[in-house]
Design a protein around this nucleic acid. Structure first.
Lengths: 195, 195
DNA sequence: CCTTTTTCGGACCATTTAATCAAGAATGAA
DNA sequence: TTCATTCTTGATTAAATGGTCCGAAAAAGG
């Protein structure tokens, strides 16, 4: 019983990603935040807690969403190289889409806060090691399937490289408005898997 | 005539890089800034102008320094691949050095401000296109010297990739404390030049 | 109708912010 | 010495900050 929430909490969380992504965590004043979310001040505190709580929630929600999609794609049987290519092309596609790219920039703000918000630091550590391991296992499978030659000796290094490249694409997107640049970067990045 | 400045303006500029790199532009309060610089408030305003002015000066000084070193190394005759390898290993070395890495993080804060400080945006655009062109010319020379095979067809894409990888290393350094990860990333990054 | 829950808007708070002004002491060159 | 420049310190300003409290209206279920 009682009145229902008028806003979808996950939709508002998406908007929070955009706002924090655009202004950064410290650069986002409460006023800007409320204007961006389209809800009243009290609703924010009732639903999400403080500004920092909301930020952490948005970061986690974004990261979990992306990580889940990545793990799902890596786990699909078939060519591992094709899976990795898909993953990177999907990221590039998101960063080239005017509507979707805005959310992605919250990653930059999140990395900014790593030294100052322990909860985000540990969260990223765990997420990174999980994904690095997933990449590694996928590469092992690729090797067993004959997709990789002996010249890709250090699969651990390759896994770390792929995981890092994922993050770095959003940084590239912040620095250029030319979609061709993103495609070029992805193309060369994937060439590390060529035989 | 008159009293001399007691502090070296470029030394203070270095400290400014560290402070802004650690706290971000908006996260750096004037008090934190003054404590980090070790000068009095009035000295800051007399010498550098406002907080934003100092930030822009620090960013430009850092970028110019790094870019000049890069261009100098690329212009040296001899193996281009060796030059590029040197460049990336030097970046990794700086990021692994507890003392030097702190300055590098100002890049993250600077990229953060790109959408909000036009002066930084245009400065980065110019710097990026200059370095991309330098990488491209170097790759052309490498090809002419027989260092690259036909499989490195798109030298423009390769140049963009190298320039982007340079930036992205500081982001990787923010996310991991394990120096081995940086080495792994550099190793795989450079493998894009292998035949 | 009654109760519960949420939304909304304004008032309010203490703190912090960047920046300016003022004044005295230190310093160095003419 | 004289004068210009810088350093240091403290006071001050006006605005913005994140966060809390309160009250009334609106909706939904009992």
């Amino acid at each position: 019983m009682g009145r229902n929430k008028e806003f979808d909490t996950t939709v508002v969380l998406r908007k929070a990603m955009e706002v924090f992504g655009h202004y950064g965590y410290e650069g986002t004043s409460l006023q800007i935040l409320l204007d961006g979310l389209g809800i009243a001040r009290q609703s924010l505190y009732d639903t999400y807690g403080t500004k920092k709580d909301l930020f952490i929630s948005a970061v986690k929600h974004y990261t979990n969403e992306k990580s889940a999609a990545l793990l799902a794609r890596l786990d699909r049987p078939g060519s591992v190289k094709a899976a990795i290519a898909d993953i990177f092309r999907e990221i590039a596609a998101a960063l080239k889409d005017e509507a979707r790219r805005k959310e992605c920039f919250i990653m930059h703000s999140a990395i900014d806060q790593v030294p100052h918000v322990p909860e985000i630091a540990t969260f990223f550590e765990q997420d990174a090691s999980r994904l690095e391991e997933a990449f590694y296992q996928a590469l092992v499978r690729a090797y067993e399937q004959g997709e990789l030659s002996g010249r890709h000796g250090d699969l651990r290094a390759l896994a770390r490289y792929l995981n890092h490249s994922r993050y770095s694409l959003t940084q590239a997107a912040k620095l250029t408005s030319d979609p061709q640049v993103l495609d070029d970067i992805v193309k060369v990045t994937l060439s590390a898997l060529d035989s």
